[in-house]
Simulated scan of single mutants.
Amino acid sequence: MIDTAKINYDLVAITPQGQTLHLNEVLRNLTWEENPGELAVRLEAELQNQQLPSGRWLHQQLPLGGQVFLYADWGADRQEIFRGTVFNWHYRTDPLGHFTITAYDPLIYLAKSKDDRYYSSGTLARVIIEDIAKAWQIPLGTVEGPDIGLAKQVFRGRTLADMIFDVLDQAKKRGAGKWIVRSKQGKIDIVRPGQNSPVYHFGADDSVAQVEDQQDIEDLVTRVKIVGAEDKEGRAPVVATLDGRTEFGVLQDLVYKEQYDNLAAAKAAAQDILAERGQPRKKRRITAPDLPFLRRGDKVHIAAGTLIGYYLVAGVVHNANDRTMSLEVEDVG
């Protein structure tokens, strides 16, 4: 395991004049995070405001739209951890003046932009995502797939991030497996999760400070009935029943056939409900020493509390102040 005491963090800003500012000496707090269901990494830094030798104040050199970079060195040479754009700026006094900036990596533009887009039947999922990235001038990095053709795609008024999530979901249902879209050094990567090497171990005796493991069936659905059209007396027949994990008892939802083109489409909708809500919910987190390079989609090994085995990182919050990170993990597969 890496000695976190030897990790060096370096937060850098590019001023409007094109100069490089190293911000560690005025840095009060620094975190960055990747969350489930989000494309972009979010970085938040709290900085002590001060006047620079040029006469300008620091806050003037970090405007909205400014560029920031985070580097780290853990004994494997200095590497870029984050690059992004300032989207939020908040100044306050206590009584000394300080301000907080919030920056996102380039994929934030896909999350905050809507568009209409069309792709013909048979277009590869990878090609759709590449086309969206190119339209928003995001360079392509490591693109490994998914190389599977999809049905005709018609998107109307959707965010580009939602389009990408839909494409990945459809590709998975067609047998392409799971894929991760993330940004690295300003480029978009499309990779399979769990391909990182080495796979780091987190154990109760050496690195894990806290374990949280919560499971519930509060929102579970174990049976979906498909209901047909009512007769003259108002009775509606059950035309199909799909069962899931009924060992938990019958927790039932309904699909109405008349809302779909045919029975096959109604069954597909019922199957989607079971796929989305047919398993117990699991919320599992650990707190451990920071590995600044660890990303959403990476594989880790945990042996602490009730978490024993290999897991994928579903979300991560890095804290440079106390050199810790909080990992939300999910099962591999």
Score class of each variant (00 low, 15 high):
8 N>V: 00
109 Y>M: 11
304 A>P: 01
112 K>Y: 07
154 V>W: 08
108 I>Y: 07
68 V>T: 05
214 Q>P: 01
167 V>P: 00
92 R>F: 13
309 G>I: 12
252 Q>N: 05
186 G>I: 13
33 E>P: 04
66 G>S: 12
278 G>V: 06
274 L>T: 04
49 N>W: 10
153 Q>M: 13
186 G>H: 09
241 T>H: 06
266 A>E: 02
173 K>V: 03
171 A>W: 04
197 S>C: 02
308 I>V: 11
71 Y>V: 02
300 V>K: 04
107 L>P: 00
150 L>A: 08
142 T>K: 11
9 Y>S: 06
59 H>C: 03
115 D>N: 12
187 K>N: 07
137 Q>N: 14
80 E>N: 12
41 V>Y: 04
313 V>C: 03
181 V>Y: 03
58 L>I: 02
36 P>G: 14
68 V>H: 00
259 Q>I: 07
278 G>S: 08
217 I>M: 08
63 P>E: 10
140 L>Q: 04
143 V>K: 03
38 E>N: 11
178 K>S: 15
123 T>H: 03
172 K>G: 08
181 V>P: 07
36 P>V: 15
206 D>Y: 10
2 I>G: 10
300 V>A: 02
103 A>F: 03
116 D>E: 06
31 T>D: 02
164 I>P: 02
88 N>K: 15
319 N>G: 06
197 S>M: 10
239 V>E: 00
26 V>C: 06
257 K>V: 03
168 L>R: 00
208 V>P: 00
112 K>T: 13
44 E>G: 08
184 K>L: 09
299 K>H: 14
288 A>K: 00
277 R>M: 09
260 Y>C: 04
214 Q>K: 14
265 A>W: 03
10 D>F: 00
302 I>Y: 09
101 I>F: 06
263 L>V: 04
305 G>C: 12
246 T>E: 14
285 R>K: 14
281 R>C: 13
21 L>S: 01
281 R>T: 15
266 A>F: 00
328 E>M: 09
59 H>T: 01
307 L>A: 07
36 P>I: 15
246 T>Y: 14
43 L>H: 04
108 I>L: 12
128 I>W: 04
39 L>G: 09
319 N>A: 01
25 E>V: 08
333 G>M: 11
152 K>Y: 05
121 S>Q: 12
247 E>W: 15
152 K>T: 13
307 L>D: 05
83 R>C: 08
257 K>Y: 07
19 Q>I: 14
319 N>Y: 08
86 V>I: 15
178 K>P: 08
170 Q>F: 05
183 S>C: 13
58 L>A: 05
206 D>M: 11
112 K>A: 11
230 E>A: 13
21 L>A: 07
105 D>V: 13
57 W>Y: 11
227 V>H: 06
72 A>R: 02
267 K>N: 07
146 P>A: 10
122 G>D: 02
40 A>C: 09
